[in-house]
Design a protein around this nucleic acid. Structure first.
Length: 435
RNA sequence: UCCUGAGUAGCUCAACGGUAGAGCAUUCGGCUGUUAACCGAAGGGUUGUAGGUUCGAAUCCUACCUCAGGAGCCA
């Protein structure tokens, strides 16, 4: 019985005859010799078939095989420096599962394509090398994220996707029918529920999809994206900043450690990632505004950063920066004010370098019951909807806080991508719901 | 939602008022070490849609549709 292996295992089976199931990635031929390149999801393997060593019909069927046809090849493996991947198979037998029709060939050829075409064929585009590299880095970031929190005393407590109302009043929500006469909304943050979980478990995190119905049309926005949100009881702003920084250092380190090959495929300048070490740059909002004004920005104290502002700031440093103490006015109702300066909130953003900008937003939450009630009123929010949230401040309230990191933004930064759309298998954007 | 730009062969693009073209892909032929292989040939088009200007429109004008980039908002 012949061993069935994956291409990634080739090195362990040199000089043995094995069978490899996969898809035809490309085929080069030269008269009496053909080089089918096989793809199986774990890598690429070049095969060699010579007319003189094979039955006529086997050689002919291989010679006319079309791109992405599915097949199982059997043959002997050899180390071969000329072959991509370093190993090559001398074909002995071929079983073709399906030959892709010449009348309707695989649309994504080895030549260049535009983004519209590729996005329309996203279900097939995922077969390409570059997409594999990105999705594997994403996988590593997610695994590292879970490992980081699991190893640091956090309990995973996921929060609901269906919610009865806005978590944060400002942004738009996707509305869905919830049975007969009730409306529900897709969550845009697990944070409020996370606070309840933190009061139950101490340190928690949730990790799941979130939805924003904002009509944002930029290279940094998805309408459906994944967010990890840790929340800690008994934590102040300094502790939140410490965890955020240590977490970012950890995930970048893990990708450098385990996904070098993928970063190479993506032509990522890893020297930039090596610099992601503690301590990060720390700057108050006040200083950031002064810095921006000195560098030509129109920003006034009290305003939020524009996309250009983040670029101006982050280009000055080679590692991520933590910006804290934003004006309370521009932040959510639950943000704790600085006791020494009530006009600023104890919030923090982590801005990725190289112009990537905000990947993390978070801060300390209000734990004083009366202040929270006042803020709910000031923001004209329906108090009844927040009864349970207010309860958290009635039964043993403690200082607490946390942050959220958008996974896709982190992936885009770590992979060095131009656009967030490639960081998730099937991106959902303002004008893209299909495939 | 607003601003800017682009829609020509399956794909990537050229032709910018006078008979619509190339490379890749597909088919056929050639080649025993190719590396997005190469060489030769063939098929392939209501130029996004609708209207207008003109003797004549892919090309100029108007509207609409689609996509991309940016703004605002955010992770």
């Amino acid at each position: 019985m012949t061993n069935r292996i994956t291409i990634a295992q080739a090195a362990q089976f040199v000089d043995q005859t094995v069978e490899v199931p996969g898809w035809l990635y490309n085929l080069r031929k030269s008269g009496k010799i053909v080089f089918p390149i096989l793809r199986d999801g774990t890598g690429l393997m070049q095969c060699v078939a010579m007319k003189n060593n094979l039955p006529e019909e086997v050689f002919e069927s291989l010679k006319h095989l079309t791109q992405e046809s599915s097949l199982i090849v059997t043959g002997k493996l050899r180390a071969e420096s000329r072959a991509p991947g370093g190993y090559e198979m001398d074909v002995e037998a071929v079983e073709i599962l399906q030959k892709v029709s010449e009348a309707d060939p695989y649309p994504i050829t080895p030549k260049e394509h535009g983004t519209e075409f590729l996005m329309d064929h996203r279900h097939l585009w995922l077969r390409s090398q570059r997409q594999h590299a990105i999705i594997r880095v994403r996988h590593e970031i997610i695994k590292a994220t879970r490992d980081y929190f699991d190893n640091n005393g956090f309990t995973l407590v996921d929060t609901p996707i269906f919610t009865p109302a806005a978590c944060e009043g400002t942004t738009t929500l996707f509305e869905v029918n919830y049975f007969d006469d009730e409306k529900a909304y897709l969550t845009q943050s697990g944070q409020l529920y996370n606070e309840a979980n933190a009061m139950a478990f101490g340190k928690v995190y949730c990790f799941g999809p979130t939805f924003r119905a904002e009509k944002s049309k930029t290279r940094r926005h998805l309408t459906e994206f994944w967010m990890v949100e840790p929340e800690m009881a008994f934590a102040d702003l300094e502790e939140i900043k410490r965890v955020a920084e240590q977490f970012v250092v950890y995930i970048v380190g893990r990708v450098l450690d385990r996904r070098r090959e993928e970063l190479k495929v993506l032509e990522r300048d890893t020297s930039k990632l090596e610099l992601v070490q503690s301590p990060f740059v720390r700057m108050s909002y006040d200083d950031a505004v002064k810095n921006l004004q000195a560098n030509g920005s129109e920003i006034q104290w009290g305003g939020d950063f524009g996309g250009g502002d983040e670029t101006i700031l982050t280009r000055q440093f080679d590692r991520p920066m933590l910006v804290d103490r934003f004006p309370s006015e521009i932040k959510a109702f639950y943000m704790a004010p600085d006791p020494d300066r009530p006009e600023v909130a104890l919030g923090v953003d982590v801005l990725a370098p190289e112009g990537y900008g905000e990947i993390i937003g978070g801060g300390q939450r209000i734990h004083d019951p009366e202040l929270l009630l006042r803020r709910i009123e000031e923001h004209k929010l329906p108090k009844e909807a927040f009864d349970w949230y207010i309860d958290l401040r009635k039964y043993g309230t403690v200082p607490h806080g946390g942050f959220g990191m958008g996974i896709e933004r982190a992936v885009a930064w770590i992979c060095g991508l131009e656009h967030i759309r490639e960081t998730i298998a099937f991106p959902r954007m303002l004008y893209r719901l299909r495939p």
